[in-house]
Design a protein around this nucleic acid. Structure first.
Lengths: 225, 225
DNA sequence: ATGTGCGTCAAACGTATGTTTCAAACAGAC
DNA sequence: GTCTGTTTGAAACATACGTTTGACGCACAT
């Protein structure tokens, strides 16, 4: 069959296994047996396990970052001069993620889970790879956030962005488990689109909360400064 | 020296290494060499690596859950009948965490990072252990949150709680790295208390955001339902 | 037909892991 | 001092990992 679809079969299997088990917990033997290819094929085609991880991320991150750049271009053009609002910026990101052409119905949740893992698991090589390869759209996103929240001090904005990233990465990185709980306890099915639709208002509201460093409303005496 | 501080030295080393590298990425040999004890001591005193992980969690989670129960008792007593507000509930949790006696200055960030890892890394045995052992205070916290946000639907509330947990666990778990960045880029020192003081208003605002499932403010046609 | 590259295969490599073993060292009770 | 149960020590165990090897098959150009 033409030339080797082995590469794609490996990428598909690796993507799925990484997403559901993490990187260290997924062995090459699991990947190759799920993909029904020979063990040596990974090292032959990719060179190493780390390079395979990079390839898995590159396969969906490269088209995504292009889509995202376009979305930001369009958004800034539509706003002509004025900086886009916080909601517009967040939605541009969300739409770009949701609209990505998916390989299968689990595509986007795998995508999200992998991003969460990349942030959470402290794989040094991965973080360097992602910063080097995809740092630019990330920085652009940060710049848009800054322009959309001029009322925040630099320190407040910095921390609130961390909170946003945390809520997003954490939710997405455990989304399968969470969806299981929700299905069992509440009997509800949830799509990634619905989660995103709930997440964005939460983030926007938190981002625009009244200034921090209020004294807690209890009788307490926490040292806040 | 009395009876073996070997156990504590192992727990100290394991706690720190788990927090900074994750569970699978931390070998027993790293732990025992950091603790300067013999390799066999772990299996002798704890039985297995998994049991060691449980012991690490138990050591800080047991006193914490007791502190937390007291804080909730006191809060409910003070409110006499009326359900505590969202802010009060969040502050009760935060104070309990911050006021825990710390083994060292990194105590609370290790604590948070471990909780985040427990949620994120799909270690089945750990989740079962935590649910079995500490499910009760967690459920009580959830009940308080429910009573404090009667306007939310069960599904909305469920997801927003996940967002809160994510922002918290993520932020606290990387707070050392984040504080370094902040110190370098903005020239500011930050304590865990200050981070908490910024986090709680963010969470409260997100939790009380207008109902979700709004159509995005752009021209888009995302399927939100 | 024949040689050349590329992809696949089973097998092995060296290393690191969690766990076990068993002898030695130690403590406190009598 | 001697005994007894507990804790440590160095070494080995079996297994799993990522990676490498070298033979083999197959297409295609000459």
């Amino acid at each position: 069959m033409a030339q080797s679809d082995t590469v794609d079969r490996i990428l598909d299997a690796a993507e799925e296994l990484f997403a559901e088990r993490g990187f260290s917990e997924t062995s090459l033997r699991m990947i190759t047996s799920k993909a029904r290819v020979n063990l040596a094929a990974v090292n032959y085609h990719f060179g190493s396990k780390n390079a395979l991880i990079h390839a898995v991320f590159g396969r969906f991150l490269t088209p995504f970052s292009a889509t995202l750049e376009n979305a930001f271009d369009e958004l800034e053009a539509r706003c002509g001069g004025n900086p886009p609002t916080l909601n517009q910026t967040l939605w541009a990101l969300t739409e770009s993620a949701v609209r990505m052409p998916q390989r299968n119905e689990k595509g986007i949740s795998i995508f999200m889970r992998l991003l969460g893992l990349a942030y959470t698991q402290s794989q040094g090589h991965l973080r360097k790879f992602l910063e080097l390869e995809y740092g630019e759209p990330f920085n652009r996103f940060m710049r848009l956030l800054k322009e959309a929240t001029p009322q925040l001090s630099a320190v407040d904005r910095y921390w609130r962005i961390q909170f946003m990233l945390g809520a997003t990465a954490f939710t997405m990185s455990s989304s399968d488990a969470l969806q299981d709980i929700l299905r069992n306890k509440l009997g509800v099915e949830t799509t990634v689109q619905e989660i995103a639709a709930r997440l964005v208002p939460f983030l926007a509201a938190g981002m625009q909360a009244p200034d921090a460093l209020l004294v807690p409303p209890t009788s307490s005496k926490i040292p806040v400064a």
